[in-house]
Each structure stands twice: as C-alpha cells, then as structure tokens.
C-alpha cells in the first residue's frame, strides 16, 4: 500500500499535521495529514461533524470568516504554503471549490453566475474558452443561460455550481457533498461529470457522505473521524474493508437479521476517541 501511495508524482495539495481551532476554544482538527497528487481523484469520507468541511475551509481559505484558526501544521498548494491565503489568491493560483449546498447566486441569471465564477480571470479569451468547456460539459446550462438561477432544478443548480467553479480552469477542484439532496439518477450524472472533468486534467478532492459514489470514482480515499484521519488507502482497498463497509457503506456484519438488532445497533468500535 505504501508504494501505491507514493507512486504518483509530487502532490499539488498537501496538508501537513493540521490542527484547527474555532473561536479559540473548539478543537476540530487534531493533526491531519493528507495530499492530492496531480490528476488524481481523492475522496474524503466521514460522518457528520467529523471535520470534513473544516478541513475544506482550511484548504480553501474560508476558515477565517468562520472564526477558525490554524494553530499547528500547514496547508500547501502547488508547493506554496497557503495557511494565510484568502480565497481570491487561491482561486488565482488554480484552486476552485464547489461549496456544500450548491450556493449558487439564485438572483442572478445562469450566465451571470458563470461570469461571477470567472471574476478572477482577466483575459476575455480565457473566459470564452472556459465557458465553451463548461457548456460542453453541461449543455443544459447553455439552453437556460438567460433564466434566473434560482428557478433551475436541484440537479441543474448543482451543475451550475460545478460549472461556475470550472470557469477559472482550476488545477484542483474541491467539491463538498455534490450529491447532497439529489436523486440517484442525478448522482450518477454528477459522478460521470466529475470523472470527465478529471480526465480533462483537473485533480479533484471530493468530500462525500455518499461513500459508495465517492469511492467508485476516486483513486484513493481518506476516512475522517473526530478530527483525525483514521484510515486511508486505495479506493478498492477501502471498499473491501470490513469496518468501512459497516460504517459507511451500510453493508456487512453478517448475522444481523431482525429489526430489533438494527434498532439496538451500536458501532462495535470507534477508531479514535
């Protein structure tokens, strides 16, 4: 496993022993190390409150406005230490994100949403190229470019959110729960799109509660619990792991049959306290 992890070239994103505190009292991340290499899809799994979103915020520079602070460790993007970068600078450097809950600008039209995504791009030609690429990925956005974004369906809004993030032609795309609240068919569609984006040369960091979906496209995965990384490995290894099966994929533990067993179900163990 070790050399499988090392086989890719140097990481474009690396998080080193990161510790994050909110409001100067609440310790949320307790020493996290992870990395994303060029061209990879990396999944980040974990239950509610495990610290996934906090980890993303420290990567994308949104920690400060949530009164969080990196107290130890570092985040580096493309070899540069980015602990204190603001999102504007990170976006210019090539890191783009799709926030949890889509967060599209509902009062603006689809077209304006895409333009707002390209705010940091100065050259008109680059914007046009990115626009063509986004429209190629999401033809539905082209057909609805003049309608108010708030009137799109949930799936279309998610596509718009991803399209908006792609307008800067990022090196790394960070997605927070893209499958949240979508029908299974749409989840499939989003999954395929993420794969396509990745094939076009963008690395992806995918945060998901839908572990099946995430591991089905990711090269590697990390499991986050209580602010620590408790498991990491190649996707197919994680998919085979009994604990992961039980905790995140909802299968396993043979022998449980009746409803009563399910009702009194307790996790056998936690990986960390």
């Amino acid at each position: 496993m070790e050399d499988a992890l090392e086989k890719k070239e140097k990481p474009i994103l690396s998080v080193d022993n990161l510790e994050v505190v909110y409001n100067e009292v609440i310790l949320v991340l307790r020493g996290i190390s992870m990395n994303v290499s060029e061209g990879e899809i990396v999944a980040l799994l974990g239950a509610n409150g495990a610290g996934k979103t906090t980890l993303l915020r420290s990567i994308t520079g949104l920690l400060e406005i949530h009164r969080g602070k990196i107290t130890k460790g570092s985040v580096s993007f493309l070899g540069e230490k980015t602990n204190r970068y603001d999102p504007s600078r990170l976006v210019r450097a090539g890191l783009s994100q799709v926030m949890e809950g889509r967060r599209i600008f509902a009062e603006l039209t689809v077209e304006e949403n895409l333009k707002a995504g390209a705010y940091t791009v100065a050259s008109r030609q680059k914007i046009a190229e990115a626009h063509d690429r986004v429209v190629g990925l999401f033809p539905v956005l082209a057909s609805r470019s003049r309608s108010t974004a708030g009137y799109l369906s949930g799936g279309e809004q998610q596509m718009l959110a991803i399209g908006r993030a792609l307008m800067t032609s990022p090196r790394l795309l960070v997605l927070d729960e893209p499958s949240l609240g979508l029908a299974p068919l749409l989840v499939q569609q989003i999954r395929d799109i993420i794969e396509t984006v990745n094939r076009q040369g963008t690395s992806v960091l995918l945060v998901e509660q839908n572990a099946t979906m995430a591991l089905s496209i990711a090269n590697r995965g990390y499991v986050l619990e209580n602010g620590r990384i408790v498991r990491d490995g190649l996707s197919h290894e994680l998919l085979q792991d009994d604990d992961i099966k039980e905790f995140y994929l909802g299968v396993g533990e043979a022998g449980r049959r009746s409803f009563r067993d399910v009702k009194t179900y307790r996790r056998r163990k936690r990986w960390s306290a």
Binding site: L62, P87, S88, V91, R92, R103, F105, A116, Y119, T120
Partner: peptide, 9 residues
C-alpha cells in the same frame, strides 16, 4: 461567502 469563495474580492 459564496462570492468570497469564488475569488471575488
């Protein structure tokens, strides 16, 4: 926040 995250200063 979403605008900030998109790199809008």
């Amino acid at each position: 926040e979403a605008a900030f995250a998109q790199g809008i200063s």
